[in-house]
Amino acid sequence: MHTVWKGSISFGLVNIPIKLHAATENKDIKLRQLHKECHTPIQYQKICPGCQQEVKNEDIVKAYEYEKNKFVILDEEDLEKLKKENEAKAVEIIDFVQLEEIDPIYFERSYFIAPGDGGAKAYALLREALLKSGKIGVAKIIIRSKEQLAVVRVYKNTLLMETIHFPDEVRKVEDVPNTPSDQELSKKEVDTALLLIDQLTTSFDPTKYKDDYRTALMELIEEKRTGKQTVHPKEQEAPASNVTDLMSALQASIDKTKKKKPAARKKPATKAKKNA
């Protein structure tokens, strides 16, 4: 399992060397875009709309747009300095809370926590303490130059870290449009809805849920592949090199000159001068 972060986790005076591994993976099927005419994969270029020219990575700077079309440019040196000042490779648990106190809207991404070299005993200690207390740890961590709020909890026999949104990153429910106010509902309507919920209530078993669209899409792709309904890009003619072009031009010029040059005339024999 690929390690995405190395550092340590601390609570109180206990410090545990750890490694983070992504706990989830995106299994979306990625589709390429091809040119309909020749089936060549489409490439995307970075074009400056002002200059109408392709821009190379070394010609790009980062900036913050504080007003429409008004920017503050941030140099790479400034960003790197800021990154180094804040990139302490440590997860510091600052509070312990009940998991039920955090609404799922805050949760973002999950990472398995593995102990680093010499950290097995301290790792087991934190895991046992969390299990016995029924609490989770609230911590801060910097990943990819971004400070993250996170929680540390036990998942089966492993410690799990889940990054969570800061409060100002969660939008206000008051801004949701067209939310109905209190509606007058009859007792029969409510009882019928509760009966339906009761009939569909079961224990959560994640293995029973499948991505039906992804399965159907893969079946369609495989059906087309085995049926030889495949395409490949047309072979592109290699562009002639500048040297070849130059040699061709020179040779054409020589041939053209030969055709225009008149044949050399033989000089007529000169008559002997008469003696005076």
Rank of each mutant, 00 (worst) to 15 (best):
247 M>E: 08
247 M>S: 10
225 R>K: 10
262 P>W: 00
240 A>D: 05
253 S>A: 14
271 K>W: 10
251 Q>W: 10
254 I>S: 04
271 K>R: 11
236 Q>L: 15
258 K>G: 05
264 A>P: 00
209 Y>L: 00
216 A>M: 06
204 F>H: 12
214 R>F: 09
213 Y>Q: 05
239 P>D: 02
258 K>E: 03
269 A>H: 11
227 G>A: 14
226 T>R: 12
258 K>V: 06
228 K>H: 13
268 P>G: 04
230 T>V: 14
266 K>W: 08
263 A>W: 04
261 K>D: 00
238 A>C: 08
250 L>R: 07
235 E>K: 08
214 R>K: 14
212 D>W: 11
265 R>G: 03
245 D>Y: 15
271 K>A: 12
226 T>Y: 12
259 K>S: 02
242 N>F: 09
208 K>A: 07
240 A>H: 03
266 K>S: 07
235 E>R: 07
208 K>M: 04
213 Y>L: 06
211 D>H: 06
233 P>Y: 01
232 H>A: 10
268 P>F: 03
215 T>Y: 06
258 K>T: 08
205 D>M: 14
205 D>Y: 13
241 S>K: 00
214 R>Q: 06
243 V>S: 10
246 L>I: 08
230 T>I: 08
222 E>I: 12
227 G>D: 05
206 P>V: 02
262 P>Q: 02
214 R>E: 02
249 A>Y: 05
261 K>E: 02
204 F>Y: 12
270 T>I: 08
234 K>R: 09
267 K>I: 00
212 D>I: 15
232 H>K: 13
210 K>A: 12
223 E>W: 11
220 L>P: 00
238 A>D: 15
261 K>Q: 01
240 A>E: 04
212 D>E: 15
238 A>K: 14
246 L>Y: 06
261 K>P: 01
211 D>V: 10
268 P>D: 03
203 S>A: 13
265 R>F: 03
253 S>I: 14
232 H>M: 12
266 K>M: 02
202 T>H: 15
209 Y>P: 02
230 T>D: 03
208 K>S: 08
263 A>T: 05
203 S>R: 11
241 S>Q: 03
234 K>T: 13
241 S>Y: 00
248 S>Y: 09
211 D>Y: 09
251 Q>M: 12
250 L>N: 05
227 G>F: 13
213 Y>W: 03
248 S>A: 14
207 T>P: 01
226 T>M: 10
238 A>E: 13
233 P>H: 00
246 L>G: 00
259 K>T: 02
214 R>W: 04
252 A>R: 04
255 D>W: 04
244 T>V: 13
217 L>I: 07
217 L>P: 01
241 S>C: 03
204 F>P: 01
223 E>I: 09
241 S>V: 02
217 L>F: 06
258 K>A: 08
205 D>H: 15
205 D>I: 15
